[in-house]
């Protein structure tokens, strides 16, 4: 059973191609849609809601055709926009009740479900106050609540962690995880950070310039991209400690490359990115550093950045077109 299927989906605006022959297949669960600014994430969501016609190709949401069955899709799907959408002079309760009724819930059910949903997203006494006084975190929760209030089968969340501090971001991501595990609702969530979605999603789809770069389960992803950043000092015996370690690791059969190849951080010449094959990699690196007599400045799990995935992908496929999952 699939939740979203797209087939060669293309959206062209007069000046840009926002989506370029995108073919993906999204199963129930939490799916991350990752891409840089302008990658086409919001465009895809508008098409999936049946609000913006595709230029070419087709898409089905919950088995319904986006081109002809938009109204039926919008009855079963919830949507959280990336931008602000809350009037400041009404309370969260009034607002969500109204939105529940716009989704077709009778008055009593609208009130009950609003109370439940606001509690589930973690909004308590504040829900009776005008939303103008809410923090960004509270506003994001109300936006999520209005997308969930009619108990949809799928929610489309456009950058829900936007503007949140690290703690708020973690709360939001936990909440999103629960939307699936506790509420049984499938989720498509967009972000421009792969790292933050890894923990939350079962499956990640990466798009760039409207094209599919990669679509795979999160575990595949982590394996393919898990990297250890190792920084060493130079010694008299090894004037370029990094190069020496790289040679030693390569001999030991461990894939590693200098981080400077990414055009990354200052002083990155001393940092190696080591591919983690398993637990033993850590021991092997430690031993190699000790054998060479180098000083170990740091050894840490790298946060994955989209750029890194892109780069790996490019070297994997040598510029070939994306492979669908």
């Amino acid at each position: 059973m699939t939740v979203i299927v797209t087939q060669s989906l293309t959206k062209r605006y007069p000046r840009v191609t926002a989506l370029d022959r995108l073919t993906v297949d999204i199963t129930p669960g939490v799916t991350g849609l990752v891409g840089a600014n302008g990658a086409g994430k919001s465009t895809l969501i508008k098409i999936l809601l049946g609000l913006s016609p595709a230029t070419e190709g087709d898409a089905r949401v919950l088995g319904l055709d986006v081109a002809t069955e938009g109204p039926a899709i919008r009855e079963r799907v919830g949507y959280m926009p990336e931008h602000d959408c809350l009037p400041p002079d009404v309370s969260a309760t009034e607002f969500v009740v109204h939105m529940a009724r716009m989704s077709g819930l009778p008055p009593t059910a609208a009130r009950e479900r609003t109370a439940d949903t606001l509690r589930h997203v973690g909004l308590y006494e504040e829900r009776y106050r005008p939303m103008g006084g809410y923090s960004t975190g509270m506003k994001q929760r109300v936006k999520l609540a209005q997308a969930l209030v009619h108990d949809p089968r799928l929610v489309l969340l456009d950058e829900p962690t936007n503007g949140l501090d690290p703690v708020g971001r973690d709360h939001m991501l936990d909440l999103i995880r629960r939307v699936h595990t506790d509420f049984g609702i499938s989720v498509l969530v967009t972000s421009h950070l792969l790292g933050e979605l890894e923990r939350t999603c079962d499956h990640v789809v990466v798009v760039d310039g409207g094209r599919l770069l990669r679509s795979s389960s999160t575990s595949d992803f982590t394996q393919a991209t898990a990297a250890l950043a190792v920084e060493v000092t130079d010694t008299d015996a090894h004037p370029d400690g990094g190069a020496a370690l790289l040679a030693a690791l390569t001999t030991a059969g461990i894939a590693a490359r200098p981080a400077s190849a990414e055009g990354g951080l200052p002083g990155a010449g001393h940092v190696l990115l080591v591919e983690v094959a398993g637990e033993e990699t850590y021991d092997l690196v430690r031993d190699a550093v000790a054998d060479l007599g180098l000083g170990l400045v740091r050894m840490e799990q790298r946060q994955h950045h989209i750029a890194e995935v892109f780069q790996q992908h490019d070297s994997d496929t040598k510029g070939g077109s994306g492979h669908a999952g």
């Binding site: 809601l49 609000l51 109204p71 919008r74 009855e75 799907v77 949507y79 926009p81 931008h83 602000d84 959408c85 809350l86 009037p87 939105m99 716009m102 989704s103 077709g104 209005q146």
Partner: peptide, 10 residues
């Protein structure tokens, strides 16, 4: 910008 919330519904 509440309008999109309406039009994403029935």
């Amino acid at each position: 910008r509440t309008v999109p919330l309406y039009f994403s519904r029935p």
